[in-house]
Amino acid sequence: MLTARRVLIVAYDNTQILDIACPSSALDIANRCGANPPYRIELGTVSRRPAHSSAGIALTAGQSLETVAGPLDTLLVAGGAGYEEAAADPRLVTQIRRLAPHSRRVASVCTGAYVLAAAGLLDHRRATTHWGYGDRLAARHPTVAVDTRPLYVRDGNVYTAAGVTSALDLTLSLIEDDHGPTLARAVARELVSYLHRPADQAQISMFLAAPPPGDRLVRDLRGHIGAHLADDLSPAALAARAGVSTRHLTRLFTTHLGTTPARAVRAARTEAAAHLVRSSALSLAAVGRRCGFRSAQTLRQAFLDHYGAGGDTIRRMPDMPRPRARPGRETPVP
C-alpha cells in the first residue's frame, strides 16, 4: 500500500512561478480534501540552489536533484523564461534523464517541455507547449510530434501542458486519474475553478469558441475523448464510463453538442490528426495510430469527409483547414 504519492517539481532560475504554484497548490488542496494516499510535494533544483522566479520571488528548494532517489510518483518540470539555459544545462538534463525511469509518470508545464526534450523523453511522442514556443521546439527536436492546439497532452506516461494556467487543468486531470472525479471536483471548487477545461480545448481564441456544453457528463466525456484519442471511444465504452445507456448518451450528445457520440469522437480524432500532420513529419500511419485510426487509409477518408482534402494537402496548407459544414450520414468510429 502506498503511504504517499511523491511528487517532485523541478525548478531553475527564471522559472514561471505559476507553473509551480498551480500544481503544488492543487495537490495540497487534494490532500486537505481527503486524497488517500496523500501527495508529498517536493521542490528540487540543481545543487539545491534557490530558484529565482521571473516574478522576482526566490523559491527555496527542499531537494538537491543530485541526491534524490526514486521511486517517484510524478516528476514535473516547470517552464519559464529561463528554459533555454535550463535545457542547455547538462547537470539538470542529466538528473531529469536519471530520475525519469524511476517515476510513474513524467510531466512538464509550458517550456519545461524543452527540458524533457533535451533529456530525450519526448522522442517519438506527441507533446505540447505554449503556443508561442511550439515551432521552435519542433525545429529543435524533429522526432517530437509537437501539437500546440491542446491544453495538455498525454502520451504513455509522459504529460505535457501548454503553459501557465493549463498546469491547473493538467493537475486536476492527474488528481482525477489517481482518486476519481469526486475528489477532483472538490479540489476545483476549493480553487474556484471550472472543472476542468478539456485537454483538447484550443490554446488560442478559446473564449471565442462555442460555449462548453452545459451538461457536466457531456463536458467530462468530451475532455476524456480529447485526452484518450487512441483508446476505445465507442458509444458503448463512453456510455459505460458515464454510467448511462448508449441511448441516453446519444440523447445527451445530440442535445448539448448537436451531434452523436460517434461523430463527436471522429471529429475530435480527425482534427487532432490534422494538427499533428501539420506540426510533425510523422507518416499518416503513425499519426493515425496516435489519434485512434486503424490505418492510414481510414485517416485519409476521415480527412476527406471532414475537410474535403487529403493528408498531403493539409500538410502543405498555410493555415489549418476549416471543417466542411454539411450534413451527412453518421460514419462509424474507426
Score class of each variant (00 low, 15 high):
211 P>N: 11
232 D>H: 12
216 R>I: 13
225 I>K: 01
221 L>I: 13
211 P>D: 08
232 D>C: 13
228 H>Y: 10
215 D>W: 03
214 G>Q: 03
213 P>G: 15
219 R>H: 09
223 G>I: 01
223 G>R: 05
234 S>P: 13
227 A>D: 08
205 S>N: 05
230 A>Y: 13
243 G>E: 04
226 G>H: 09
221 L>W: 01
228 H>D: 11
209 A>N: 01
236 A>W: 05
206 M>G: 10
211 P>G: 00
218 V>Y: 08
217 L>A: 12
222 R>D: 14
236 A>Q: 11
241 R>F: 07
237 A>V: 15
212 P>E: 09
238 L>D: 01
237 A>K: 03
215 D>Q: 07
233 L>N: 10
223 G>T: 01
207 F>W: 12
219 R>F: 13
233 L>Y: 11
241 R>S: 12
242 A>E: 06
227 A>H: 00
219 R>D: 06
240 A>T: 15
217 L>D: 05
210 A>Y: 08
231 D>M: 08
217 L>K: 07
241 R>Y: 10
221 L>V: 02
204 I>E: 04
209 A>R: 12
205 S>G: 03
210 A>L: 04
219 R>T: 04
226 G>M: 08
217 L>C: 07
228 H>I: 05
231 D>E: 14
205 S>P: 02
235 P>V: 15
221 L>N: 03
229 L>E: 01
219 R>N: 04
205 S>D: 12
220 D>H: 15
233 L>G: 11
214 G>R: 04
223 G>E: 07
242 A>R: 11
241 R>I: 11
233 L>E: 02
241 R>P: 13
207 F>V: 10
220 D>L: 14
229 L>D: 03
241 R>K: 09
228 H>T: 14
221 L>A: 04
206 M>Q: 10
213 P>E: 12
237 A>Q: 12
214 G>P: 08
224 H>P: 02
241 R>N: 11
207 F>Q: 09
237 A>N: 12
217 L>R: 15
236 A>N: 05
231 D>F: 14
222 R>W: 10
214 G>A: 00
207 F>S: 07
235 P>R: 02
229 L>Y: 05
228 H>M: 06
242 A>P: 15
243 G>T: 14
209 A>W: 07
232 D>P: 15
239 A>P: 15
216 R>K: 09
207 F>K: 03
239 A>T: 13
223 G>N: 09
207 F>R: 10
204 I>T: 13
243 G>W: 13
210 A>M: 02
211 P>M: 06
209 A>I: 02
212 P>V: 13
222 R>T: 09
226 G>K: 10
212 P>F: 11
234 S>D: 04
212 P>H: 01
235 P>M: 10
235 P>G: 08
210 A>F: 06
204 I>F: 06
216 R>G: 11
241 R>M: 13
227 A>T: 14
218 V>A: 03
210 A>H: 03
229 L>R: 06
